[in-house]
Design a protein around this nucleic acid. Structure first.
Lengths: 333, 333
DNA sequence: TTGTAAGCGTTATCAT
DNA sequence: ATGATAACGCTTACAA
């Protein structure tokens, strides 16, 4: 039960060598074959595992990566997380999750409190990019990779997405399906993706009469509320297509419309952004623009590992191309 | 940029006291008021944060909790994770995720490799409970809480669920809605929940002619495949209700049925188990039995913290009661 | 109440 | 090639 974990000392004793030799062998440095064997054998017999805390203390850094997001409940972040796991796999690094839940971005505070040993590297995907947060990130004593579109001047590794392109893809698709009045259901405008996608839509629709609704959160509930507002419009004003700023909002719209007996896509076409795993499962399956969350997570993990091994390299950037996935909610084939 | 993190030594120098006083003050031990003030001030000015690795090494344990699950992609586990976060919040403990992804449960290996400092406590929800895994858990040098139904003899803290009760709830409900032939779509029988739910169904349906299908995984795809088998049955054999072993399977059935033009619930009623967040969003919304994943996560975190502070207390057990949530997929109101 | 010093388990430097 | 030893930053007897 309370067997004390074996340390290098026990291994050394058992192998009849010094602790230095044990450390060397276990870290793959050269040693005489028989020394190597004896140490390996002793370690195996004792079930020795190095103490991560001690190693981290000595080395000045462990292999602990933290992923910080605003809301782990959103499937997008689960996928991002899976991507990070993919990118980390094989490196021996471990992943921690830090989610601030619903609170208005406590991420800055969280970032400041990441002490070494708890986190040796950070992947962060902040909904809101306050200058305070950016400052904490730039000043962070540990390597940071941001998943999101930073201003070019910010000296941080980042994985970006072409937001405007994503919105355009969906918008053009809806148009090509014959939609005349396309409404936009946006997320909170004070968030980075919220404002980027809103701006992109406004630019695209400036000559069309696209109605714009803004919601308080990127959730299904908000989508349902937005639907209610849409349903209250006069017949002439009612859109024949909705472009939602993310899939959760789109699903809310979808649910609202179907409950009200509106046929999708016949009477109302609906498209989202993110292409969460569930998008294809719904009925009708949701047309969406994939932002490749999993790939972004993987790329972020790669950038982070690069930076952890090469702390003073110039900041790098990866950009992921959005991809339209047409399904039943816009096009009954 | 590469500012070396301040340590107790710098704080002590700045405050004009010894490192011992710094440690004492920062850990809330009594000290003279002016000493306290000077230390606090110095720490604040320097932006001092204790090194988690060093503290963990010295104390023999940090506050790092690991959650190990088979597949983070399943929303049930996201909810479990959120529950663990809830239960940990305020305790200063941090959460790590370990997921083996799709691989045939490598959890045993994972558990054996949890070195101290990386994980000071473990919450594990294993799909398969091999005796090998159980042994690693019982022998684990760090506190462990299992989310799942252990044999009573296993001396481990656990959070359990009444599987048989959950299946019964759904079965009786389907019967009460007038279903005559209820089919069961089970998960992999070599998993703990897979076999428990299957056994429960067989017991309930032994006098009825309930058909039983078994799938290879708890996923939407498997559900869709199961639907195809169901659809291939002769009209006389076809069920008028399906009870799926989890919501992902149920959603697959739902999707298959709707695509085939089968009306749900009129021609086929569908019920799942787990009550994932998305269950209510689907159309028709999915009837499901809630296993209160989030609450189970919270309870697991509480048990773990208790054990971490009281290592030799007798094993505890919490049992969560399943709850039927009736929605449109079984009952058009 | 405060300071000195030991030690947690590891890696790395320096002799040998 | 190997062994003795110092050091990473922290907490905690023990002394003063």
């Amino acid at each position: 039960m309370t067997t004390r974990r074996p340390t290098v000392v026990q291994v050394a004793r058992r192998a009849g060598v010094s602790i230095a030799s044990v450390s060397r062998v276990l870290n793959g440095k050269a040693a005489r074959p028989d020394t190597t064997d004896r140490v390996r054998a002793a370690a195996a017999e004792l079930g020795y595992l190095p103490d991560a805390a001690a190693r981290s203390l000595k080395l000045g850094s462990g292999r602990q990566v933290t992923l910080a997001v605003d809301d782990i409940g959103n499937p997008v972040y689960s996928e991002l997380m899976q991507g990070v796991v993919d990118g980390l796999s094989g490196s021996g690094a471990r992943l921690s999750i830090a989610s601030t839940g619903q609170e208005p971005s406590e991420l800055s505070a969280l970032v400041r409190n990441l002490s070494r040993g708890l986190a040796d590297g950070l992947v962060i995907s902040p909904l809101r990019r306050s200058s305070e947060l950016l400052r904490s990130l730039v000043d962070s004593p540990i390597p940071v990779v941001v998943v999101g579109n930073l201003a070019d001047a910010v000296p941080l590794d980042s994985v970006r997405i072409d937001s405007a392109g994503a919105v355009r893809l969906a918008y053009r698709h809806l148009q090509s399906m014959g939609a005349a009045r396309i409404a936009f259901v946006g997320g909170p405008p004070d968030t980075a993706p919220g404002s980027a996608r809103l701006t992109a839509f406004r630019q695209l629709a400036q000559h069309d009469d696209g109605r714009v609704l803004v919601t308080g959160s990127f959730t299904v509930r908000s989508g349902e509320r937005a639907w209610n507002k849409l349903a209250a419009l006069s017949k002439a004003e009612r859109p024949d297509a909705v472009l939602a700023a993310n899939d959760l909002l789109a699903l809310g719209i979808l649910r609202g419309a179907l409950s009200a007996g509106v046929a999708v896509p016949e009477q109302l076409a609906v498209a989202g952004i993110d292409d969460i795993t569930f998008a294809r499962v719904f009925s009708p399956a949701l047309t969406s623009v994939s932002l490749r969350s999993r790939e972004r997570g993987r790329l972020a993990a790669e950038l982070l590992q690069h930076r952890m091994s090469e702390p003073s390299a110039p900041p790098q950037m990866r950009t992921v191309t959005p991809r339209l996935v047409v399904r039943e909610s816009t096009c009954r084939s």
